[in-house]
Design a protein around this nucleic acid. Sequence first.
DNA 1: TTGTACGCGTTATCAT
DNA 2: ATGATAACGCGTACAA
Lengths: 334, 334
Amino acid sequence: MATIYEVSKLAGVSLATVSRVMNKNARVSDKTKKKVLEAMDTLGYRPNAIAQSLASNCSNSIGILVSELSGAFFGQMMSGIETELRAAGKHVIITTGHSEEEKEKDGIEFLIGRNCDAIIAHVEAVSDEYLIEINKGKVPVYSMSRHVEALKDKCISLDNEAGGYLATKTLIDLGHTNIAYIAGPQFKADASNRLQGHKRALKEHDIEFDENLFYIGDFREIGGSAGLKHFLDEKFNFTALVCANDEMASGAMKYAREHNINLPEQLSIIGFDNVIFANYLYPTLTTIDNPVDEMGKMAAQLVLRDVYQQKKLEIERVFEPTVIVRDSVSKLTN
Amino acid sequence: MATIYEVSKLAGVSLATVSRVMNKNARVSDKTKKKVLEAMDTLGYRPNAIAQSLASNCSNSIGILVSELSGAFFGQMMSGIETELRAAGKHVIITTGHSEEEKEKDGIEFLIGRNCDAIIAHVEAVSDEYLIEINKGKVPVYSMSRHVEALKDKCISLDNEAGGYLATKTLIDLGHTNIAYIAGPQFKADASNRLQGHKRALKEHDIEFDENLFYIGDFREIGGSAGLKHFLDEKFNFTALVCANDEMASGAMKYAREHNINLPEQLSIIGFDNVIFANYLYPTLTTIDNPVDEMGKMAAQLVLRDVYQQKKLEIERVFEPTVIVRDSVSKLTN
DNA sequence: TTGTACGCGTTATCAT
DNA sequence: ATGATAACGCGTACAA
């Protein structure tokens, strides 16, 4: 691989001049610039990113920490981030936390050790205090889908409480009053906020929260099946079901079909996230839209602005959820 | 951040010695080793990965190129790769190619520019020749899900032809003879190989390949809906449908339901890949298993062995597909 | 506008 | 076993 030194020799200029034409900031005469460019071309010169990083103390890489690499939710999120960052010539280093405190911390320190200029993390198990503490260090850690007041300038999140409210309110407006709820793991901030929204909607309509109609799932299909099975086995009375994400809704729908429950006539189901396959389920899933790709894009822009002093776009930090009405929910008929 | 220099000063040894205790290869006396370790500890020393890379000419990072970051298929693939690599202390830099030749080349060169020690690529648009050519360079490029004979030591792939054969054969064995086929984009090697397998199965059973019952989709849900719509609009006669991947099968199933076609009584549908949601569709999707996560893991092991001289595991380069029987396929009843 | 020289934090090659 | 010292490839004051 040709180095900057060889380029300078071929072009008959100094190392510094070559460096200057690369980092367009300094002024170089057109003549010499042309000579250098030509030399680069004939040598097929490619700057060594590692050496650049070492000298400039800037790696042009952004660390991303997600819970899982698979799953529609994270896929869309990563996609939003990477597209935006790549267009700006940055690159992403991706690793996983698996929703476990130790692994999440490991992941973040791993990314710091890799000299990332910033980290965008979707963490669920570490404490707010840890996030605050780690942010006192050199590399800024941005939080996705989780709001920490002390770090609000570094958070991009959906108003999950409003989303949870919206989901339940949608069912109530259709006449349902016996509404079961399958929640996500409550140590996860978004899961807990969604539940709070659910409770607020109930309260607002004088419906008492019923522990019997509450089940904590795992945000995966199996959690939805297990939750619905639980409610049915116990013969509890309900006409509608809120699932705290679409995967669980899918699992619940599968279980319902296997047990000959007509959807949505006998049971209305609403999901959360509006992942891609929600529109291909049967019946198509009514759900709460969670624009994760947009949020990922926004997080990337935030980093570009704060860390690399690029652009000056308006940053939207808290996204508002909306209902996507499809076929899995119907009016309560007596 | 403490540097190796400060550690050496505090421990009262030279830079070289500190470096030696880090890279456990060389022999250092237990006494000095202990001193150094203590110094590192009190200073909270963390080696600078960038500087290590520059000096050792090894970045400990592996580039991954996928078509998309979202989608069950790529999610599982990345997950398999990352888990294995991370456990070995390596990290992944992920970027996308979007199935377009220019972007795929861009992506690969981007990763090379980032000094990746190796690249694992799922490419679809670039030519075999390009892959061969790029592999003459310093950084080895491994290919996922695409077999290139001249590069067979660097390829991890599913026998897609056998899979395509298996899918169609499954239907034939159930009595179907009018079998429609929705293919993937034919410039993609896996799509083309699956189709070849389909044709072989037909031929083997003296069924003529019917252009009318052939449609080229896009590997996404929409392609499946469009394909089935096409066949139905033209009123072609068929009792079974092979979709070259599960997404298209999902799209076709949705379209079928919307047009009151009973599945699988009136139409048997088989998919390909066995992505996670295949088991949550209605009816649950019979499909060809494609162990992408296993293949990702294997690719990672291959890199670990060839590039980092780790382990000496047996590498499995070509995986055999199997049928996963579920509910979307039934016997032909006259 | 251009060139010189030093620094970035390691590894690696010699000596000792 | 340990210590100097030269790379590694580039950015950047400072000088010219």
